[in-house]
Amino acid sequence: MGEPLKVGIIGCGAIIAQYLASFRRLDAIDLVAVADLDFARAQAVAESYDGVRALSVDELLAADDVELVLNLTIPAAHGPIALQAIGAGKHVYGEKPLAATTAEARLVLDAAREAGVMVGCAPDTVLGTGIQTARKAIDDGLIGAPISATATMVTPGHERWHPNPDFYYQPGGGPLLDMGPYYVSALVTLLGPVVSVVGAASHTRPTRVIGSGPREGEEIPVDIDSHVTGVLVHASGALSTLFMSFDAVKSKSANIEVHGSHGSLAVPDPNHFDGDVQLFALGSDAWETLPVSAGYLDSGRGYGIADLASTAAGSEPRAGGQLAYHALEVMESVLASAHSGSTIAIASTVARPEPVPLVALAGGVSVGGGPAGGAGSALG
């Protein structure tokens, strides 16, 4: 992989702790600088991580030793910060979503293409052993020809535990845009791109009551659809059904199920990197837990950046901007369909990402299937 990729982080909120834990284990990544609008937060991170400088946002973007900007800002800032980083000649990797809208996300991808830099985007959970073992089972023909899938995310509402849940219930929030990137990215990884969608949605309560923290008992408005369903038609002909709810209480279904002509798979939570994959084969009388057979072992948030660093020149990272854009368009279109009552064609497409062999990046040891990346890094 050559020299480690030198990374600067913009945004030092709560999620940064998970990235820092991964970076400490990944030889492919050298964290050199952090920035935040609250400079004290950047200083605290720098003091906790050897060799890291606390900078202003402008200083980080101008730093010669920053090759890639990890964008951990709020979703509304994902697009603007990415464009600034690209303008400074940096590769970018962001938390989901790629941008607030597909129009803004298209600006990011077009700017990156013009500048000759790479774009990656969470979720990189699809690179872990859970989704990748399921992907390998499908590719190996264990369920026969894929026919359909279901993706289920049910919670009675984040206001029950989150002390400041307002943004979940404002435009840009809601169950689909909040959690959908994990599920849609997983479905595309498993079954390929989506060509059309139809959606339905409901808005069951005008307000929510905060259940914990200093604002406990405070009523907040709900300005989004809090329950969304959708049917995704994949280019392969498979049909996926989304069930995303901030209203329902609980589900006994697997987070994702994939059904084929010769069997069914129960796939673990796509918000996690691992978990058991279970197969019920045609003619069997019980579910079988499959051995872990693919994906980055013991992975965590930030492994998508290490994967990007090993991506062959001219290739798209597995957790790349094209996949993130496609997932965002699918989600926007499900919501648009829910309000128009019409089937909506998906204009974008994306190649099904290359599978991840079973590999332990932190130790640099391949456990099977060869190296994780291409023959040469796109980053030099």
Rank of each mutant, 00 (worst) to 15 (best):
G2I: 14
E3L: 10
G11Q: 05
Y19C: 08
V34N: 13
A35I: 07
F39E: 07
V45W: 04
Y49Q: 15
V52K: 07
V52M: 06
L55W: 02
V57Q: 07
L61I: 06
D64F: 02
V66L: 09
L68A: 09
V69P: 07
T73M: 08
A76H: 15
A77Y: 15
H78T: 08
P80Y: 05
G87T: 03
V92A: 01
Y93T: 02
K96S: 07
T101Q: 09
E104Y: 01
R106D: 15
L107V: 12
V108A: 03
V108N: 09
A111F: 01
V117Q: 04
M118N: 12
C121P: 10
A122Q: 14
G128C: 05
G130V: 01
G130I: 00
D139G: 10
I143M: 05
A145M: 15
A151E: 00
T155Y: 13
T155G: 11
P156M: 01
G157C: 05
H158P: 15
W161T: 12
P165R: 06
Y168S: 09
G172W: 10
P175C: 05
P175Y: 00
P181I: 05
S185F: 09
S185D: 13
V195Q: 07
A200Y: 08
V222Y: 03
D223C: 07
V249Q: 13
G263Y: 00
S264C: 14
L282D: 14
L282S: 14
S284V: 02
W287Y: 11
P291W: 04
L297T: 06
D298M: 13
R301N: 12
A312F: 06
A313I: 04
A313Y: 11
S315N: 03
E316F: 03
G321Y: 04
H326E: 08
E332N: 00
A336K: 14
S340E: 08
A347C: 02
E354L: 12
P355I: 00
P357M: 01
P357T: 02
A360N: 15
A372T: 11
G376W: 12
